[in-house]
Design a protein around this nucleic acid. Structure first.
Length: 468
DNA sequence: TCGTGAGTAAACAATA
DNA sequence: ATATTGTTTACTCACG
């Protein structure tokens, strides 16, 4: 399964609008496995799901856990309908991508081996080692003694982006981190200092001028500098165990360089190799992806619902409804923009989020204040662009010669080197291949979604057709 | 070895 | 007066 497939699969999961309430879990599972086997014959994902579906299967433990025991026991998704209300002000890109679902408070009673890693492998003699072991997928709710594999800038970024208005006071940033990463509840107090230090020093973060009459107590609100947002996204994508990362891992099983194309004379850049210290086993990886796909729908959360600083329950129906509306909008934007927006390409970490003084981003039109540049209250078009970017690594191949300026995108100025292999493939043949793969992806996604109790448009159509 | 990013600690000023 | 917030400096460590 290619990277693009995974991303689209993930995208489709996020798009799933309704739930199939008529079908039993067993039959759904069977259907899923059959469909996946056809769609991705011999794929590891198919195998993993196969193991998940067979309660008494002979799959090894590594494959069974934790999906079969935790997530699917929690497959409960309230049927939601699309409302007329178009307000989506509290949505952030993370919620729209559902990426935060993966690090929301969740079940903590499974994944024994992870817990063991937590208990055993982190003690070096009398010294407590908070570094997360490289071979265990990180779960912030389980590995409460492991330091999150996210940098402070990523944590802050997630916190701010997870807020309804994409701006938070320091106090709420602390809270968000504490809520989502219990590790910090017992961590040495210096981490707050580090957060503040990061806010001050990292130019990705900006203070928002207080509105008159606004009483948020001491201090200012902090937001993400939109010019650097793509860089933070890129940094987050490179983070191990991020859902996106997992999908990318799955998509790139060989440690060979993969290239994608960027417009306007840029050379194809290798995707970041994912076989560093945090490499995990293929089986585990597949399982994580499947886990992620389920988590993406927020189905595995058993803990207390997370709330925004405005008190909004992220798990509430109204929130989900608005989320789905946003996703529909996102889908439209995705189609519209997929061939027009360059993606963020950075080769060095400093391009992701940097303390250095070089400000590439200010080339564009300057704004007098953050508020002018960053439309907190309205639906964020830029968000859609980034989602498109994140989900469509390959789609720019046809746009190599395009010249599309985008002030929110940093592209590394390198020479354009066409991949000779790709040049050999005619556009028509490629289209055919893409269509074929797209078909398979949709089938696989349908099956997966149905297993999770979610009915997609296409499966709904199929179902109707078969009934009639 | 060197440059850079990241984390940590600390000092200090400003502010609610 | 106190706690919190924001800024700055210095240092260490890891990594390429």
């Amino acid at each position: 399964m290619r990277e693009n497939d995974c991303l689209q699969l993930m995208h489709l999961v996020a798009m799933a609008p309704t739930r199939n309430s008529d079908e039993s879990d067993a039959s759904m599972r069977e259907r899923l496995v059959n469909s996946l086997s056809q769609s991705f014959p011999g794929s590891a994902l198919s195998k993993a799901l196969s193991c998940m579906s067979a309660e008494d299967s002979e799959c090894d433990d590594d494959m069974k856990d934790p999906l079969s025991s935790s997530c699917f026991a929690e497959l409960r998704l309230d049927k939601v309908d699309i409302e007329d209300d178009d307000e989506l002000t509290s949505l952030s890109w993370l919620q729209d991508n559902d990426l935060l679902k993966n690090i929301k408070p969740s079940d903590v009673d499974d994944d024994d081996d992870s817990q063991k890693e937590n208990d055993n492998n982190h003690r070096d003699g009398n010294h407590f080692n908070p570094t997360h072991p490289p071979h265990v997928p990180y779960n912030p709710q389980k590995h409460i003694h492991s330091k999150p594999p996210y940098s402070f800038s990523c944590l802050i970024f997630m916190a701010v982006e997870d807020s309804p208005h994409k701006k938070l006071p320091v106090k709420d940033i602390y809270s968000w981190i504490l809520n989502h990463f219990p590790y910090f509840q017992n961590a040495p107090t210096g981490w707050k200092n580090s957060v503040r230090h990061n806010l001050s020093l990292n130019k990705c973060f900006k203070k928002v001028d207080k509105d008159r009459g606004q009483s948020i107590g001491k201090g200012s609100l902090w937001c993400i500098d939109p010019d650097y947002r793509p860089n933070l996204l890129q940094a987050l994508r490179k983070t191990p165990y991020h859902p996106y990362h997992q999908l990318q891992m799955l998509a790139n099983p060989q440690p060979t360089q993969q290239y994608h194309y960027v417009p306007n004379g840029m050379r194809p850049m290798p995707l970041t190799p994912r076989f560093g210290p945090n490499t995990i086993s293929p089986h585990r990886d597949i399982q994580d992806v499947a886990h992620t796909l389920v988590s993406l729908k927020g189905l595995g959360n058993r803990g207390s619902p997370a709330r925004s600083s405005d008190g909004e329950d992220y798990a509430s129906n109204s929130y989900r409804m608005r989320l789905k509306r946003k996703q529909m909008q996102l889908k439209t934007d995705f189609v519209k923009r997929r061939h027009t927006e360059p993606i963020v390409v950075t080769e060095v970490p400093s391009d992701d989020h940097t303390y250095s003084l070089t400000n590439f981003a200010n080339i564009g039109s300057p704004a007098s204040s953050i508020d002018e540049e960053y439309d907190f209250g309205e639906e964020d078009d830029n968000f859609s662009e980034e989602c498109s970017d994140m989900s469509d690594w390959d789609s720019d191949m046809d746009e190599v010669d395009g010249d599309i300026p985008n002030k929110h995108t940093k592209v590394t100025p390198h020479k354009n080197i066409h991949n000779s292999n790709m040049a050999k493939i005619t556009s028509r043949k490629r289209k055919e291949m893409e269509e074929e793969e797209q078909k398979k992806i949709v089938e696989g996604a349908d099956a997966l979604l149905n297993l999770a109790g979610i009915m997609t448009n296409s499966s709904s159509l199929k179902s109707n057709r078969s009934h009639s």
